[in-house]
């Protein structure tokens, strides 16, 4: 049904020309733009939602909304960045609806316990060489997806927006409706949690379970407040 492969990232000039053609009514031009970003948009939706059907719905909604709003696209940001923001909003809205369905909270992102102690780094072992060289790429992908899936939506959304999408701390806070201080705390929690999970997968032979107290790090948790 769709024989054309996704295209690589477009240079700015090509992108601008395609946008102009699309605005003038050329579907093929729009379709090429979509193909240039679909993998990135899927990554946002998939990594925020962790569920295929919901991720597909978010991706479709994002591109459909982009199609409807094409005339308003002025090109200040790249096309993929623009759709990335739309996709993020779609995925976050689905997350909020999911939370409401589960009756947990009206706001999926206000339920994290940000005041509790940040867990100590436990696994203190060097990684093997670059995992993407020594392990099949598909296996590394699976490990990354599984690890991200282990995080709560509140932690996951902060990590995806800040560390993967490259939003600033303030942009992340605005998008999620939480304070910048909360973004910083959750980011640290998310990074450390993922570090533990990936160290289990990629750590060297002599994987040792070590608490930092052994290294004179008692009280680390109370010292873990992130400066605002």
């Amino acid at each position: 049904m769709s024989p054309r492969r996704p295209v690589a990232n477009l240079d700015r000039e090509t992108e601008t020309a395609l946008v102009e053609r699309a605005k003038a009514g050329d579907f093929d031009a729009f379709d090429q733009l979509v193909r240039s970003c679909e993998r990135r948009i899927w990554a946002i939706c998939w990594r925020l939602l962790g569920e295929k059907e919901e991720a597909e719905n978010a991706m479709q909604s994002a591109f459909l909304k982009a199609m409807e709003a094409l005339e308003s696209f002025r090109g200040e940001a790249g096309f993929c960045t623009w759709i990335g923001r739309i996709a993020t909003n779609e995925a976050l809205e689905i997350l909020r609806r999911r939370k409401r369905r589960e009756g947990i909270s009206l706001d999926a992102f206000a339920t994290e316990n940000d005041d509790g102690p940040i867990p100590h780094p436990e696994l203190l072992v060097d990684w093997r060489e670059d995992p993407s060289r020594s392990i099949e790429r598909a296996e590394v992908r699976r490990i990354l997806d599984t690890s991200l899936d282990a995080l709560s939506p509140g932690l996951r959304s902060v990590f995806v927006l800040r560390d993967m999408e490259g939003l600033s701390i303030s942009e992340t806070a605005e998008q999620l409706g939480i304070t910048e201080a909360n973004v910083k705390v959750r980011l640290l929690r998310a990074r450390l949690a993922l570090r533990e999970l990936l160290t289990r997968a990629f750590g060297g032979q002599q994987l040792v379970h070590t608490h930092l107290e052994h290294a004179g790090l008692g009280g680390l948790a109370s010292a873990a407040e992130v400066p605002s």
Partner: peptide
Amino acid sequence: LFRDEELVAEV
């Protein structure tokens, strides 16, 4: 690793 585009899941 999470930023590596090569490691992003394909659609």
